[in-house]
Design a protein around this nucleic acid. Structure first.
Lengths: 123, 123
DNA sequence: ATCAAGAATAGGAATTATTCCTAAAATAAA
DNA sequence: TTTATTTTAGGAATAATTCCTATTCTTGAT
């Protein structure tokens, strides 16, 4: 655990948003001005592999990163991309049961149109 | 519904695999040798927006496309990327309930290590 | 059918997110 | 402390996808 990796982990864990690699990079630069973008990407990948962070992949958008302390699902506005969290109890067990496999992790994204976009009529 | 769009739709609907845009493109070329890759992408996007196809986004892999006739979830090997389907009854209703929003679509990917990869020891 | 208007296409350039490469620096091991 | 291993910074390369433009299709009204 190098200091760069620790920094990346801290930034993601202490952010209430779901940050992109680039956002993590800019925050990291505030503390370590010459950290490289590649380093951020590499460490994010390592941290995800180790299970310390979760990756959130949404079509057409860059990946976002999330802490793993509380399992949760994501609700995404189809129109503006706004992202929020919600929970479904016991989903992981359901997945294991339904798939008959040892599910290690999962990603559950629900798409809707948020209120703001609904009210804009034109889309 | 142009003939290009119809062809793209037919290819995805009549394939039991989950095809990438490029795979759709090569299949489409067999019927229409000078269809353009951009046309395939554009039409896949339109068909997804119209709800006629589903998009399947997996981190680090190109998007895949799926027919929508039967709602189903995806089981993905973390190691080799092997992809299979499974079902969870009534998940969409659960999502609406849990999120308190009008969920229009969702994507549920479960990750595991497939038997082949398990047996290979080295990963 | 003929024509005009709008939409879709082919082909290729451009963009974007991400990974890969390499030499230098840091860390760990002996 | 010397050696071996890992990681880094910086930038080039890659891959998937979108964007651009001139041309071709459709379509619907006359």
């Amino acid at each position: 655990m190098t200091k760069q990796r620790k920094l990346v982990l801290d930034i993601v864990e202490n952010s209430c948003n779901h940050l992109t690699a680039e956002e993590v990079f800019f925050k990291a630069k505030e503390e370590m001005p010459n950290i490289a973008l590649g380093t951020v990407y590499r460490n994010l990948n390592i941290l995800v592999d180790e299970g310390l962070l979760r990756r959130l992949t949404i079509a057409g958008h860059p990946d976002r990163f999330d802490n793993t302390r509380i399992e949760h699902e994501h609700l995404i506005c189809k129109n503006c991309g706004k992202l929020s969290d919600f929970r479904i109890e016991g989903i992981k067990e359901k997945l294991k049961e339904a798939s008959q496999e040892n599910v290690q992790s999962y990603e559950l994204n629900a798409y809707y149109i948020c209120e703001d976009c609904c009210n804009q009529e034109v889309m």
